[in-house]
Design a protein around this nucleic acid. Structure first.
Length: 725
DNA sequence: TTGAATTGTCATCTC
DNA sequence: CTGAGATGACAATTC
């Protein structure tokens, strides 16, 4: 991907920009393989959709702990990470650009949408924007602009004035912005691209419905006040939304967002509100943090697209995707729709209406239609991204659950070579994407009060949401792999455990705090969703209850450490699209485990991986138990040694006492001996000489006086007997 | 930077 | 024979 990106950036993009400046609209996306994400996403990276990945990866692999680059088995992961780091570097540079675009757009929206927009490459060739839509957008953006006024001022008159003169003014603005960002390393192309994107968004024909749809999106993004964001918002990743919802849900905070049950549609509707607040709170961070996250999100989306191909259709267990998703996001259906634009459209007019505008924004309408009708896959990525956000807002009302019905959006479209490359990237993204950033953000956020954290996470503010969301989401979403795991669980807010016994994740390891109740099976169908699911699940803490109370989220900050636990196997499982959690793989009894395997038609490689995971997981636990036992044994032995030492000391004391006692007794015997001996008299009445005689005890207990040197003969010659005392 | 401690994994053995 | 568990050994990672 890196090479691809470079290629596009240096070649096609510049050429496109040139053409666009000349007034010729060129849609590179149309020339790209349908399965690929929009060109601007590939190049610029920063779309909210990628933020999902960020969250996910952060969760799952937060801090990169989840992946062990050194692992021989994960060489490809290691490589992916390197590439990913390069991508990140690029992404950071682009951050400022994004914001600037957004501000500019807002201003212009007031005057004339088309001109205001970016003025860039495309001179309003697109179908005329509806005035109403402009107004709506403008209104929506008002909140955003509040924060961005400073930036606007910096931009100076250029931003506002030239609405009418699109190309030239836009170019001027771009130049100004570009100069400002030069230090940051942002390429001018970036601006152009952003502008173009914006233009597309605005230019695309919009119905009233479309306008309405856009409005929410704009509002949401409006926090950051970035156009790009808005546009990206279309691509807003589910994870991001979820994380945002989760954050709001968990912390409650910022006013509107707080609390209520996630399931409500209102939650989705609330998005805008929180975003604005959060935006203010987050604004300081946003510029810096935002883009990286976006890039990651974009990558995530891209990866998800790739995943779809890779994904096996067999993944049966799509009981209800909705159920697996965050509760707060109620709009499970929306998510599905996002995944499957065509289907979603069919199902509900509302959805389709909402969806179309976004699709149109990113790509020319014709393109969209074609994709939509015939080739779902081609537009899938875009539509998904676009649809996600809106679906939540608009579609939340209806729960459409027909996962099984949904076709594989990308089936077989991807070029294999490209797919391989993308797959690699996907791995990298999922594993360690922006973990460093996430950790940084997390630190910042951690310093802040919990409320602030939540606010950061609010869905509304693109930049804020991204930066904060990346961190918060990662923390909250449990992506960590084992994300939240080990972790006290951030994510869990929403955890809905699968009602399905088979599918539902069950927290296993105490290590992994985070557990999302999301049902992995759903993700099988929806690759990008799958990331989310995996993240949440894998990051779970084993011992943690599946559903964590909202209050428990406070511990998220600590979860990062636990996230490390998300092991390589988690990564592997995700890479291989294993439809169930490692927890289950490891902890289920043999019978249930086999039953689980039978439920899913897994490839040989997947089966092998699952068994390896089970083996390693069990061995890991066994090793832990073994070490624990060993440690206990050592401690017991230590105690035993101490006890024995004490006993030894006691025995020594006893021995000493006995010796002393013996000495005393000997002394007494000696004294008695002397006394007895001194009283003995011979035949002449003279005492015996102790020199020549001695008293001796016979074996029979008698005491006899024997001459010295003849004690051995005493028995034979007893001179005196019965001298007992 | 070094070294100890921790942890994960593999190989092997036992039940 | 298979699976699970135990454990020594090694390597990776963290502190």
């Amino acid at each position: 991907m890196l090479s691809l990106k470079k290629y596009l950036t240096e070649g096609l993009i510049q050429f496109t920009i040139l053409l666009s400046l000349m007034g010729v609209r060129v849609d590179l996306d149309s020339y790209l393989p349908s399965h690929l994400p929009p060109l601007h996403e590939i190049i610029l990276g920063p779309t909210s959709a990628y933020t999902q990945t960020q969250f996910h990866s952060l969760r799952g692999t937060s801090d990169g702990y989840g992946v062990h680059p050194k692992s021989v088995d994960l060489d490809h992961f290691f490589t992916s990470r390197r590439l990913l780091n390069s991508v990140r570097a690029l992404d950071r540079l682009q951050v400022p650009t994004t914001e600037l675009d957004a501000w500019l757009v807002h201003r212009e929206a007031e005057g004339s949408v088309s001109s205001a927009q970016t003025g860039s490459s495309r001179p309003a060739d697109s179908p005329q924007e509806l005035p109403g839509s402009e107004n709506n957008l403008r209104d929506a953006l008002v909140a955003e602009q509040g924060r961005g006024t400073e930036d606007l001022e910096e931009l100076g008159a250029t931003a506002q004035p030239g609405n009418s003169d699109l190309s030239k003014e836009d170019i001027d603005l771009i130049d100004i912005l570009w100069r400002q960002d030069i230090d940051l390393g942002v390429g001018r192309e970036d601006f152009l691209l952003h502008d173009k994107r914006n233009d597309e968004l605005w230019e695309s024909p919009q119905d009233d419905l479309q306008v309405d749809i856009l409005e929410p999106a704009l509002l949401v993004d409006g926090e950051t006040g970035e156009n790009v964001r808005h546009q990206d918002q279309a691509a807003l990743s589910i994870e991001e939304c979820l994380s945002l919802l989760d954050a709001s849900y968990a912390f409650g905070s910022p006013a509107e967002f707080s609390d209520s049950a996630p399931s409500d549609l209102q939650d989705a509707e609330r998005f805008p509100g929180p975003s604005t607040q959060t935006d203010e709170l987050l604004s300081p961070f946003l510029p810096v943090m935002e883009n990286p996250v976006d890039l990651e999100e974009q990558w995530q989306d891209l990866m998800s697209l790739m995943d779809m191909q890779v994904m096996d259709d067999n993944n049966s267990a799509d009981t209800s995707l909705q159920s697996s998703l965050y509760p707060p996001l109620q709009p499970d259906v929306d998510l599905e729709r996002m995944a499957l634009p065509s289907c979603s459209r069919d199902q509900s007019d509302i959805f389709s209406s909402s969806l179309e505008p976004f699709v149109a924004t990113d790509s020319p309408l014709p393109q969209f239609s074609s994709h939509n009708s015939s080739d779902v896959n081609s537009t899938f990525g875009l539509t998904n991204l676009t649809g996600i956000l809106f679906s939540q807002h608009l579609n939340s009302t209806t729960n459409l659950t027909a996962p099984e019905v949904l076709p594989d959006p990308l089936g077989g479209i991807l070029d294999e070579a490209l797919l391989d490359e993308i797959s690699l990237m996907d791995l990298a993204l999922e594993e360690g994407f922006s973990q460093v950033q996430a950790s940084q953000l997390r630190e910042e956020l951690d310093s802040d009060s919990g409320l602030s954290l939540d606010s950061h996470r609010s869905p509304a503010s693109p930049s804020g949401s991204e930066s904060s969301s990346s961190s918060s989401c990662s923390s909250s979403s449990s992506f960590s792999e084992e994300g939240a795991v080990g972790y006290s669980s951030d994510s869990e807010v929403v955890d809905q455990e699968d009602s399905d016994g088979a599918i539902g994740y069950q927290p296993e390891y105490s290590k992994f705090c985070r557990m999302s109740s999301q049902n992995p099976s759903h993700y099988q169908r929806l690759p990008f969703l799958e990331h989310i699911g995996h993240n949440h699940t894998y990051n779970m803490m084993p011992d943690e209850p599946e559903e964590q109370p909202v209050a428990s989220r406070g511990s998220r900050r600590q979860s990062g450490f636990l996230d490390r636990q998300a092991g390589r196997d988690e990564q592997r499982a995700r890479a291989m699209k294993i439809p169930f959690s490692n927890e289950k793989i490891i902890n289920l009894p043999v019978e249930e485990f086999n039953e689980l395997l039978t439920k899913y038609q897994l490839s040989e490689a997947q089966l092998c991986l699952v068994r390896d995971i089970r083996r390693r997981g069990k061995n890991k636990m066994a090793a832990q138990n073994c070490r624990k036992r060993k440690l206990d044994t050592i401690l017991n032995l230590e105690q035993e040694v101490k006890r024995l030492n004490r006993e030894r000391s006691a025995r020594l004391r006893e021995k000493g006492e006995n010796i002393r006692s013996l000495q005393q007794m000997k002394q007494e015997v000696e004294n008695l001996y002397q006394e007895v001996f001194s009283q003995l008299r011979d035949q002449h009445g003279r005492p015996y000489s102790s020199q020549r005689h001695a008293l001796h005890y016979n074996s029979n207990g008698n005491i006899v006086l024997v001459p010295r040197g003849a004690e051995g003969q005493q028995g034979r010659r007893p001179e005196k007997k019965d001298q007992r005392k």
